[in-house]
Amino acid sequence: MKIERLYSIGAYTVDYDPSVPCLIIDNVGFITSQEFRTLLDKSLEIFEEKKKIHGKMGWLPNLTKADVFLEDDMKWMASYFNPRAHKAGLRHMAFVLSEDEYAAASFSVESYQEYSEEEVGDQIINRNFKDEESAKAWLREVLNVN
């Protein structure tokens, strides 16, 4: 099955991979708070639409080329986005991070995951991966969609 580009804002894109199934949010460079929140809101709309087809969907943010995210945005994502995403059926997020442990986005993800645990506990399970294929393999396994 072919991966389909469904949305973009600046250098950020939202792709749909029906073979997993999941949304792939590819983050390149810096994103403003407004763009970030618009991207997540639009991605959640797409997620809800595609989940109707599959029953279950994964979320795969590829942050290998992303800059640091603002702390307020990580808090917003954990406290505002996560409850909405959970209500929409999101249960698994597979982050793809740079192999450079000092990459800026890695620190942002760490902050987000701490805030997320405080806000929704383990209702949305987060895992970190070094490449998209490993992330997709995990999502296929946990989603158990055939």
Results as ranks from 00 to 15, higher is better:
I3C: 09
R5F: 10
G10C: 02
A11Q: 14
V14Q: 03
Y16T: 00
S19R: 14
P21Q: 05
P21L: 00
C22D: 03
L23W: 04
N27Q: 12
G29L: 08
F30T: 06
R37Y: 00
L39W: 01
L39C: 03
K42N: 11
F47Q: 02
E48K: 09
E48M: 14
M57P: 06
G58A: 08
W59L: 04
W59A: 01
W59S: 03
L60E: 08
L60T: 02
N62R: 08
N62K: 14
L63K: 08
L63H: 10
K65P: 06
A66F: 03
A66L: 04
D72M: 13
M74P: 00
K75W: 01
M77V: 01
M77G: 04
A78K: 02
S79Q: 15
F81S: 05
N82P: 09
N82I: 06
R84K: 13
R84V: 05
A88R: 08
G89F: 00
G89V: 05
M93G: 09
M93N: 11
M93S: 07
F95S: 02
F95E: 02
S98P: 13
E101H: 12
Y102V: 12
V109A: 01
E110S: 13
Y112P: 03
S116M: 04
S116K: 02
E117M: 13
E118Y: 15
V120G: 00
G121P: 07
Q123I: 08
I124R: 01
D131Q: 13
S134V: 09
A135E: 03
A135H: 11
A135F: 03
A137G: 13
A137N: 13
W138D: 02
L139I: 11
R140F: 10
L143H: 06
L143P: 05
L143F: 06
N144H: 07
N146L: 07
